[in-house]
Design a protein around this nucleic acid. Sequence first.
DNA 1: GGTGTGAAGTCATACGTATTACTAGAACGT
DNA 2: ACGTTCTAGTAATACGTATGACTTCACACC
Lengths: 331, 331
Amino acid sequence: MHATSRPTSRDVARAAGVSQSTVSLVLGGKWNGRVSPATAASVQDAAERLGYRPNQAARSLRLGTTRTVLLMIPTIVPFFGDVHVGAARVAARHGFAVVVYPWPDDAGPAASPFAAPHEAIDGILASSLAPDVAAGIGGAPLVMLDSDPSGPVPTVDFAVADGMRAIVGHLAGLGHRRIGHLAAAIDQWTFHARGDALAAAVTALPGGAYTRAAAPLDVTASRDAAGTLLDAPDRPTALVCDDDVMAAGAYKAARARGLDIPRDLSVTGFDDVQLAVALEPELTTIRLPAEDLGAQGMTMLLDLLNDRPPPGPHSLPGTLIVRDSTAPAPR
Amino acid sequence: MHATSRPTSRDVARAAGVSQSTVSLVLGGKWNGRVSPATAASVQDAAERLGYRPNQAARSLRLGTTRTVLLMIPTIVPFFGDVHVGAARVAARHGFAVVVYPWPDDAGPAASPFAAPHEAIDGILASSLAPDVAAGIGGAPLVMLDSDPSGPVPTVDFAVADGMRAIVGHLAGLGHRRIGHLAAAIDQWTFHARGDALAAAVTALPGGAYTRAAAPLDVTASRDAAGTLLDAPDRPTALVCDDDVMAAGAYKAARARGLDIPRDLSVTGFDDVQLAVALEPELTTIRLPAEDLGAQGMTMLLDLLNDRPPPGPHSLPGTLIVRDSTAPAPR
DNA sequence: GGTGTGAAGTCATACGTATTACTAGAACGT
DNA sequence: ACGTTCTAGTAATACGTATGACTTCACACC
């Protein structure tokens, strides 16, 4: 067993010669006129000396709250780092901590053999979660991020459709008509929304031609999928990618075929992660306000936790960042 | 207040017409010969009907354990996704969950205005943590990952020195002698270790010349720092980068000066993240077994939690992945 | 001197669970 | 008929905290 078990508030009380209640009052800072400054000081001193830290389980049980929120994400990538920063900033202002739980996409909560940590928290901020999985969570107040806003769950997402329309507008202005879509083969709302908006915008274009190939979010697979688009007769003059990483694959496919970007082929990404400026030429893409997503989501969740009426779904606009990967269509 | 408060085990007991103890026994699965199958079934049925989930705070208080471990990381990047996968796999086998806590590098635990979540867990797996911060954690069993192994805390890290020596060996074999170091300007053990090993290995080379420039882990800053190395008289024929992201900056600096990689300049990275194959040419780098790091660390932590003697520090070897960014030195 | 009032604490309790010790009854052997 | 053993449960308790209700004492007021 452990060498020394942690001191409890009762130990502190004994050391300071007061009752446990007094310790709790002092350390809780609520001794306005109930405890004399001298006693308070001696309690604080004793607590310090013993290295007392309150037991969180007992505190949670008593208070019925953990002041902790779970941020569920599908995968650990920098994008969610920004989301976390935004959420954590808002949370901290209200005394909440944000802990991250990478949700394995292949396993639902039922698959967990253990008591899932989402039972030990006050609320959940879930990104890119399928509605049926969300339904299985049960109990904890939930706000979905970048997910299907048409469901009953409060949601904040990106205006990805607007983003795609902005890209098509940009490309159309450069004379592009045959536009290929390098689509993410991932069953998440955000990618469905991106694809639908893109297809609609392109086909609405006079003379617009939409082609499509899908791949997982992986450079090599994206390269191969992009290849099939580029090898088609009447190949597209622009490739719109669902994600910056996929654009890296498109670059590779283009180079392998001797196509110069952006002279022979324009390429666009989505998300504006660090990779976008690492690529050469630097990538035209849509910047998404990830930090705002986290902040807005947390604000909503706090509303929920305080039984304030949950606001309706909220959409955050992206920004078209024009860099060097797009140029007038070759004639 | 909330519409309906969650059902407790007592509610289930009432619904099933038994005592709370019986509910606990049945749901805990320990009713070997103590409860009749019929009663057990009716309890399970009632629990199901009411949607009962045990209160984790109460359970933790009673059992003195949360079966949850915190993985503290400096920043949310894919590398730590692999670490998490390894840790979670081992943890799950023992009924533990792993939750991620991004440690804000500017704020120690004392800076937290709220009860830090690391009080509500059984142990901590801390990556890239400065020893003094680690000391401030207090109480919870701790294993450090990829951190200074010379301290008193159990540690598992990468053999980064060996990795750097492998890179120098590779470059030396290609005829390189003037080697520039694009160093990460981050105060973490792993980067200090990389730098020290590299400097030693290069200067030990007959005719070896070591130069150095530092930058944060950022493409643009790395590009500028690489520029100062390339603009020096007698410029290096190879650039060794502390991290793959920095290599992307080196690529940009080289291109801006009309230098072809790898003909005029060899470049190497470290970590082998996705970016390494997105770059063109693909990057020669050191692959680190991130998943093993998490798995080994969790194994150690479980030893600690079970009062088994903590094994000594453990080093995991990296692997040199030779791709297309290194070639014989120009003469 | 009795009553009121404020200060400085303490007492008792509840949060929801897991588990040990106990009990009521049945079955059973002799 | 009576002790023994087994079955099927229940009662009681402890984990450590926060807090509303209560007590004790000193002092002041009339």
